[in-house]
């Protein structure tokens, strides 16, 4: 199992290495624009619970970035599957579905961690302390594990590139904007508030924000991320079979 997972992970890392500068620049541009526009320009006059909007925004961007970067592995799987047909090579190799999913999920998590370092570096440049306690890193790791697993599951189910783009538009983008990244979910009407508490990114944003600001962390949120991540990983495992036509 381990050899197969290493092979899948190594392939993704070789591709990431080849595209590193393009990839890193792509990862930096959106958070930088959010920081400048919402955090620095518009947010300089806004305060939430005694903190500046910039201090509120940086943890939200960390949570959002760990989600989007981990989920972006789906696009590369999609290209490998429908465009380069490399996925056929994995299906005909003597490796288990567990090995394949583990390799891809680890690759998604690695991308997420890389994205986080870029945001933390940008945050530091804007005067926000980027280092938090263990709950901060646990929140990032669990969130990226969850969304990398979800990415693999959905990448196996979609039938073409267009379906993948739709998933990004209808699943990831709404989550990115509504799950406590840019504003506290409590500001929304009660019933929406309850729905948003079912969304894992809401919990990730809360854990990461509390830990970065030195406030008490609700460990149930970490448990929720772990459970939701485990379900997504299981979904990914069972969906690999569906990719065989």
């Amino acid at each position: 199992m381990i050899q197969g997972a290493i092979a899948i992970y190594k392939r993704e890392m070789l591709i990431l290495k080849r595209r590193f500068l393009r990839h890193a620049a792509g990862q930096a541009i959106s958070p930088l624009l959010y920081l400048v526009t919402f955090g620095y320009a518009m947010g300089s006059q806004i305060k939430f619970n005694g903190i500046s909007y910039l201090e509120f925004l940086v943890p939200g961007l960390v949570a959002m970035s760990s989600m989007t970067q981990a989920f972006s592995i789906a696009t590369d799987i999609n290209i490998a599957r429908f465009y380069w047909r490399i996925f056929d090579e994995f299906l005909s190799a003597p490796i288990s579905n567990m090995a394949y999913v583990t390799g891809e999920v680890l690759a998604g998590m690695t991308r997420a961690i890389l994205g986080i370092f870029i945001i933390l570096t940008l945050g530091l440049a804007f005067g926000v302390n980027p280092l938090g306690p263990w709950e901060f890193w646990a929140g990032i790791l669990l969130n990226s594990f969850l969304f990398a697993s979800l990415a693999v599951a959905l990448a196996m189910i979609v039938k073409n590139h267009a379906d993948q783009a739709l998933l990004n538009s209808f699943v990831i983008t709404p989550m990115a904007f509504l799950s406590g990244t840019f504003f506290p979910v409590e500001k929304l009407p009660g019933w929406i508030h309850y729905i948003l508490y079912l969304v894992p990114l809401t919990h990730a944003a809360k854990v990461i924000r509390a830990s970065l600001l030195g406030r008490p962390v609700n460990h149930l949120s970490l448990l929720y991320l772990l459970l939701a991540g485990t379900v997504c990983f299981w979904l990914a495992l069972s969906s690999v079979e569906k990719a065989r036509d």
Partner: peptide
């Protein structure tokens, strides 16, 4: 069905990894 962005050696090396 080769990885176009990788070298010949890298393509072969990944396959050899898959087979342990």
């Amino acid at each position: 069905n080769l990885d176009q962005e990788l070298s010949v050696w890298e393509n072969l090396d990944i396959h050899a990894h898959l087979y342990g």
